[in-house]
């Protein structure tokens, strides 16, 4: 029997077998919540959510009650109505915060690990590159969903709790699906894009600048194409507009930004996600091998 089998003291507990990436998500979130700017953005995001919850409470308790003294005044304000449009607007407004927090959270996530030589330590532990990528992506996705799907679903639950009826449930059940789907459409490409930029960059600043430039370049290209060719459908090249088009379909908007089918926008978003994920995987594999 080898000597080390006879004498060494091994760790006698159980090692985590699956979902090893969950540890990475926890660790990254702990690090993020130590960043003051991130906390400020988080608070701003939830202030907006609180405002929307107040709107839900106001609508469900005052506007739904004809005996309320404010009934006449508030029912004139269409924007106060709790419907799919309210949730769509909420998510669209949150998308700006999602973009900022995603950059704040994700821009340094991979390049800092490479810069700080943490890759070799990570991969000398029982972690695979898939765990690593999954952990990083899920962290940014969780942050993004924390700004979008979570508060929106809370508002929806609140709405159903304040007006508990089968009719309310029947009228709003599909909104839950739309909220989740649109939140993912907002968050996933953003998270993957920022992480891809981080994987390609040497510092978080370069990664952030690259993402901003790519976004503005893309918006300008979309605007130029639609203006020059006098065809508004070319605006789909602008990524935020493509996402918006998917949102319009998910929330059953009657008036759409341009005529082109939402499936094309979906395909565009999918391609961006796949390319970004491919870049992340490739660069992490390279970093793992070169660690």
């Amino acid at each position: 029997m080898p000597i080390y089998v006879q004498s060494y003291r091994t760790y006698d507990g159980e090692a985590r077998g699956r979902f090893r990436w969950v540890t990475m998500v926890r660790q990254e979130l702990r690090v993020l919540f130590k960043v003051r700017t991130f906390v400020v953005l988080f608070v701003i995001g939830y202030l907006h959510a609180c405002f929307r919850m107040l709107q839900v409470v106001a609508y469900d308790t005052i506007v739904s009650d004809p005996n309320s003294p404010l009934y006449q005044a508030l029912r004139q304000i269409a924007a106060l109505e709790v419907n799919e449009r309210m949730f769509f607007d909420f998510l669209r407004i949150q998308s700006g915060l999602v973009f900022l927090t995603t950059i704040l959270a994700g821009a340094g996530m991979i390049c800092d690990d490479v810069k700080n030589n943490l890759m070799e330590i990570y991969f000398s532990k029982p972690l695979t590159w898939r765990d690593y990528v999954m952990g990083k992506v899920m962290t940014v996705v969780c942050v993004g969903l924390g700004f979008t799907a979570v508060p929106a679903l809370l508002c929806l639950i609140l709405h159903n709790a304040l007006v508990p009826s089968f009719a309310t449930l029947a009228a709003t059940y599909w909104i839950a699906g739309s909220i989740i789907a649109f939140s993912l459409v907002l968050v996933l490409p953003c998270a993957l894009g920022v992480l891809a930029s981080s994987a390609l960059s040497r510092s978080d600043r370069y990664a952030s600048i690259a993402v901003f430039m790519l976004l503005f370049g893309d918006l300008m290209l979309g605007g130029m194409l639609s203006d020059l060719l006098h065809q508004r459908n070319y605006s789909i090249v602008a990524f935020p507009l493509a996402i918006n088009r998917i949102g319009e379909a998910l929330f059953r908007e009657r008036q759409v930004s341009f005529d082109i089918s939402w499936e094309w926008s979906g395909l565009y978003v999918l391609v961006v996600c796949v390319v970004a994920l491919w870049i992340i995987c490739r660069m992490v594999r390279r970093a793992e091998v070169a660690a």
Binding site: Y11, G13, E14, A15, R16, G17, R20, T23, M24, R26, Q27, I121, Y122, K125, P126, L127
Partner: peptide, 13 residues
């Protein structure tokens, strides 16, 4: 601590 967690230990260990 976090390196131990990445190794696969639970929080207490």
């Amino acid at each position: 601590y976090w390196m131990n967690r990445f190794w696969g230990m639970d929080a207490a260990a």
